[in-house]
Each structure stands twice: as C-alpha cells, then as structure tokens.
Amino acid sequence: MTGFGDVTQRLAGNSYTVDEESHIEIDQDLARKTGTGKLLVKVCPAHVYSENEDGTISVIFAACMECGTCLAVASPGSLKWHYPNGGFGIAFREG
C-alpha cells in the first residue's frame, strides 16, 4: 500500500471501454506445467491474473492495461494475447 490505494482501487480510477469478448486466453494445463501461470500473477502490473485454490489461473481481462508483458514472459503456447478490438480497452487520460 502506498497511500494511493491497492491496485484494484487504482484501476477503478482509470478509464476503460470494456469489450464483451476477452482478448486473453490461457491454456490452463500448459500454464500449470510450465510455471507460466504463477509468473503471470507476479509480472502483470494490473493484477489481471490470479491463481485459484485448484491451481488454475483466473483472468480479469477488463483490467488489462495492454502492455504485453504477459505475452513476453509466457512459455510458448500457454497464452493467447492480442490487443482488444478497436476502440475498446484502456483509455489513458494522462499517459
């Protein structure tokens, strides 16, 4: 905590136009076997990824700030990630 709220509270102050379809798809088996799942939880600054008790990874695509860090660290095949459809997703007002 920084006095500026936790990550969820901070994201609530950001501006998003949320699409109906997710732009993120995770291969649960591969993510578990390769350790990619746990890694995504740590690297994503927006906390899009979280680990469930059964070891699967939940994805809150609406929180995504579209940096692409997850795709850069994911082992091959474990994650499908592309930009949201045109006009959707994060809209930075400061940048």
């Binding site: 709220g5 901070r10 994201l11 102050g13 600054p45 940096c67 860090t69 850069a72 400061e94």
Partner: peptide, 11 residues
C-alpha cells in the same frame, strides 16, 4: 499529500 491521477504500465 498527492492524489493519484492514473496508474499505468507499458512494455
């Protein structure tokens, strides 16, 4: 005493 205006990230 600052106020958060935006939290963001970039590769």
């Amino acid at each position: 005493d600052g106020e958060l205006r935006e939290y963001g990230c970039h590769l």
